[in-house]
Design a protein around this nucleic acid. Structure first.
Lengths: 207, 207
DNA sequence: TGGTGTGAACGGCTTCACAGCT
DNA sequence: AGCTGTGAAGCCGTTCACACCA
């Protein structure tokens, strides 16, 4: 199993497991079985075992998984074992919300710079960071920031993405409601919020 | 093909197509081929044709799809052909951002009520809506609001979901970083933002 | 006995090739 | 000739059953 291609779906689930084992670790739990791990997450035990087995199983048969070990192994797999820095572009309503988001810290993710095109916002402080002019995106490389978060209007998204990539960014989290074209060595994950809400009525027939 | 089970993935893509054809319709475009429709969306033409064929093809061979027809057919499939109302629970940073989100309107989605537990926010106006006390969730049924958006801290999410369901809500968009347990006739879509950013480093090896 | 690790079966979605209509 | 509609093939991911080990 060790030399298999790893499903993207597995990668998506790893942060869920990681969050849970970090929590268990903080509670002082030493050992956990796949069943105990799975049930509060809405995942099946065999799914977890399969996911972990792609990276070479690291549980103990008859016992379960060592919690501390799981934390560090999953961190390493996801490359979250060092602080990872991202730049946020766009400090509108959504950008501000993301900036004040507490959920990144546990993953050692840090928003290390904020940019906006609006001169009235530039220079102002937000969550301990000074908003920079968007023309300064080129400084990201020397600051070793290699991920970008796009929270600008749809029509600006592709330009921002291009600029981010020019500055050495290799991974983009895109909240703009657009498909973004990038070289294939760059990874884009798009979260198009309206799309999710628009699916819901299909499953909820109106009365 | 008409009596097939429809893939969830197809449903997820329909709002993307819908947004595009609404836009084309506004531009006055009358007819579009699957190739023209696909390319700006990062989707393949045969994917679009397959998706649409699940509902009984409604294009014209040798020509393409009538734009107006596509708009109304997709609206009908997604049950977005009447205004659909949702209640937002939690007016923190993220809740406020969602409330001021312009992207829902084109789908005829309306946030028709806002709730919070914080007495200091209750009674204040936000985006044309007065924030209501969360104990008033029970009034949703008589107001014919059948979808809920959860933007509260993780530890409150399950309770809010339970209350929403008690009030007749059948579909939930959940932004809280939790798995939410619901009866199986209720649909939950969870958008756990931190999870997406946490995946990114895997694809972006640190230098 | 109890819980992990994994090949194999299964199912669902995507891709393809081409038939069918205009 | 051109573009849609669709069975079939192929691929990917999940589920299962059971071998394996503490």
């Amino acid at each position: 199993m060790r030399y298999h291609r790893i499903p993207d779906e597995t990668i998506k689930r790893l942060p869920i497991y990681l969050r849970r084992v970090i929590h268990l670790s903080e509670l002082g739990v030493k050992c956990v079985s796949s069943t105990e791990l799975a049930s509060p997450l809405g995942v099946t035990p065999w799914q977890i075992r399969k996911d972990l087995s792609y990276f070479g199983g690291f549980g103990t048969r008859g016992v379960g998984y060592n919690v501390e070990n799981l934390v560090s192994r999953i961190r390493k797999i996801l490359k979250l074992n060092v602080v990872r820095k991202a730049a946020l572009v766009g400090v509108g309503n959504l950008g501000s919300a993301i900036l004040s988001f507490p959920g990144f810290r546990q993953y050692w993710l840090e928003i290390a710079a904020v940019f906006d095109i609006d001169k009235r916002k530039v220079g102002k402080e937000r969550n301990g960071l000074v908003v920079e002019d968007i023309t300064l995106l080129g400084t990201l490389k020397e600051r070793r920031i290699d991920m970008g978060i796009i929270a600008v209007p749809g029509n600006a998204a592709q330009n921002v993405a291009d600029d981010l990539i020019k500055s050495g960014v290799m991974g983009i989290l895109n909240f703009a409601p657009r498909y973004i074209e990038v070289p294939k060595n760059v990874k884009v994950i798009t979260i198009d919020i309206a799309l999710y809400l628009a699916c819901l009525p299909y499953y909820v027939p109106p009365k």
